Computed example of a mutant assay.
Amino acid sequence: MTDQDVPLWRLNLLRAFYVLITVGLAVTWGPGMLQHTDPWAQRNGVLGSLMIAVSLVCLLGLRYPLQMLPLLIWELTWKTIWVLVIGYPLWLNDAATPAVTANLYACLMGVVLTPLVLPWRYIAHHYFRKPAQRWR
């Protein structure tokens, strides 16, 4: 399967998803990165920097939506892990704080929407069926 086999509507859907991630992360983490207190920086500085970096790298998805698929696969993977290992068990045991509940809903949205956007046949061909690159 080549890049040409992925329909234009799917490429544009991927582009829209990259924009959604970029805007969402910038709105969520941008203000804290620009105007922060020392305690905020100590608790959230590394995570904020990571999230803003992901937001900026997602912009490459506008130009290269298929080449940036590993970023969306990573998004789906970490959100699924967080929901299954942290969010859902806390919710199930009535131990979820309002912040955990908000994160749970946000991550669930990503776990539901991302698989709908991903071109699974292309992913299967390029990441599972295609021969691996040589090791030596």
Rank of each mutant, 00 (worst) to 15 (best):
T2I: 10
Q4G: 14
W9Y: 13
N12H: 12
R15T: 07
A16P: 11
A16G: 15
F17M: 04
F17H: 10
Y18Q: 09
Y18K: 00
L20T: 10
L20M: 11
I21G: 11
T22N: 10
G24D: 04
A26T: 13
W29H: 14
G32N: 04
L34T: 01
L34G: 00
T37R: 04
T37Q: 01
T37V: 06
D38M: 15
D38P: 06
P39S: 03
P39Q: 05
W40H: 04
W40P: 06
R43G: 11
G45C: 00
L47H: 10
L47S: 09
L47W: 09
L47C: 09
G48P: 13
G48D: 04
L50Y: 14
M51R: 13
M51L: 13
A53H: 13
S55E: 08
V57K: 14
C58G: 05
C58V: 07
L59M: 09
L60P: 11
L60I: 03
G61Q: 05
Y64Q: 06
Y64T: 08
Y64W: 12
P65Q: 08
L66P: 02
Q67G: 11
L69M: 03
P70D: 01
P70M: 06
L71C: 04
L72P: 05
L72E: 00
W74Q: 13
E75C: 10
E75N: 11
L76M: 14
T80G: 07
T80H: 02
V83R: 01
V85E: 04
V85Y: 10
I86F: 10
G87Y: 06
G87N: 05
Y88H: 07
P89K: 05
W91I: 12
D94P: 01
D94G: 11
D94I: 10
A96F: 00
T97K: 03
T97E: 11
A99C: 05
N103C: 15
L104M: 05
L108H: 04
M109Y: 15
M109Q: 14
G110F: 15
L113G: 13
T114F: 05
T114D: 08
P115T: 02
V117E: 03
I123C: 02
H125Y: 11
H126T: 14
A132S: 11
A132H: 07
Q133L: 11
R134G: 09
R134H: 08
W135Y: 09
R136P: 12
R136H: 15
